[in-house]
Nucleic acid binder design. Structure first.
Lengths: 206, 206
DNA sequence: GCAAAGTTTGACCATTTGGTCAGTCAAACG
DNA sequence: CGTTTGACTGACCAAATGGTCAAACTTTGC
């Protein structure tokens, strides 16, 4: 049968291998587009062996998604109410953009799931995510009211950070097609542009 | 066999019906997730009947995508070099946001395709789309150099408009989950927020 | 009113795919 | 060692799915 949590070295290693392969395949093909055969081939394991470690294709997907959610929200969690508002928000933007650059597969996996209406993580969105955003939004509103940043709608500010940074991972193909082959790495320019955008949005800094 | 262009009333009507149903299914399930059976059921036709009008599942998808590309780029085409720069850009943002609100399925269909690496429309992105963006970017740079708007990286400005507006269609599930049931329609607030964001980005207006 | 052209479908097919299972092989442990 | 536990696989299955086709039914134009 399958195993809920890794116990032996072999289980530890193979579960990792499978999840890595599944991330590769799910993020580029979507849930239904991905096949167990392809994941197995990518992982270098046999299909029945996959199903020895995970109960089903869906179980792999859910494990991947829930595991991802945690690290994905870390940058937002790090937003510190006691820090300098502008620097905190700009640092958040920078960290999110780095994640788009360094973990584009994770971003696409997530985008795929939301596009489908988030069938596997709707509860997380309405629970954990909403609670976290509520908390941070209050923090931003407090900054705004104390005049430390220009007045903004805090939740839409957060949406705009998500949209702008994830765009460079999720729509990478389009970005590169438009920029053309002369500009092979969009990220340095994206960082400058986003820093400028949010600087102007948040008002004069010093 | 199949038919390249509608000739009779029946063909006209049925091709429309099929494309409408296919848009519904493809945009919510992705290409591989969609099945001909489901498209047929949604269209109220039999599966062989679908394949009388379109050569294959892929043909339906490609027809939908290429047909979409045109209307999708209309707002950008409308960006007028002779108009008032701020008003032109803000109107473009508004128009794109309206499209996210009124045609979310089209936006998701497009997002799905780009996420997969744009296998069906890569040529369009590198050709038509790039050329259009190049042209409009030059226009924006000219505005910028004449001091009519603050200095911005024109291509990333366009990316940011796409990202921010499409986010409200593609990530609708997440947006609504975070805002909660009290705020059932995110769009009015989104419009105010985006207008403020781009106003501040583009510099003092009057 | 009827032949030709266009439209629709039930039955069918080959392939793909998620998943099972009996049994083999490898490792750990006393 | 030998046995128990864990890791692995070839062969297989049922369901789903994209697509075909001959035949039946409708519409159109004369």
């Amino acid at each position: 049968m399958n195993v809920a949590k890794p116990k032996t070295r072999i289980q530890e290693r193979n579960r990792r291998t499978i999840l890595e392969a599944a991330l590769e395949v799910f993020s580029s093909q979507g849930f239904r587009g991905a096949t167990l055969d392809e994941i197995a081939a990518t992982a270098g394991l046999s299909k029945p062996n996959l199903l020895y470690y995970f109960a089903s294709k869906e179980a792999i997907h859910v494990t991947l998604l829930t595991g991802l959610m945690d690290t994905w929200l870390d940058p937002l969690r790090a937003l510190n109410g006691d820090g300098d508002p502008r620097q905190e928000i700009l640092a958040y933007v920078r960290r999110k953009l780095e994640m788009s650059r360094d973990y584009p597969r994770e971003s696409r996996l997530f985008a795929n799931e939301i596009l489908r209406g988030a069938p596997h993580i709707d509860a997380v969105l309405q629970g954990e995510l909403k609670a976290l955003v509520d908390e941070k939004a209050r923090m931003i509103e407090a900054w705004s009211q104390r005049g430390l940043i220009s007045p903004v709608h805090a939740r839409h500010l957060i949406f705009s950070i998500w949209a702008l940074t994830q765009h460079y991972a999720d729509f990478d193909t389009q970005v590169r097609a438009v920029l053309g082959p002369d500009e092979p790495d969009p990220f340095p320019e994206a960082e400058r542009y986003l820093e400028m955008l949010f600087s102007r949005l948040l008002g004069p800094g010093d």
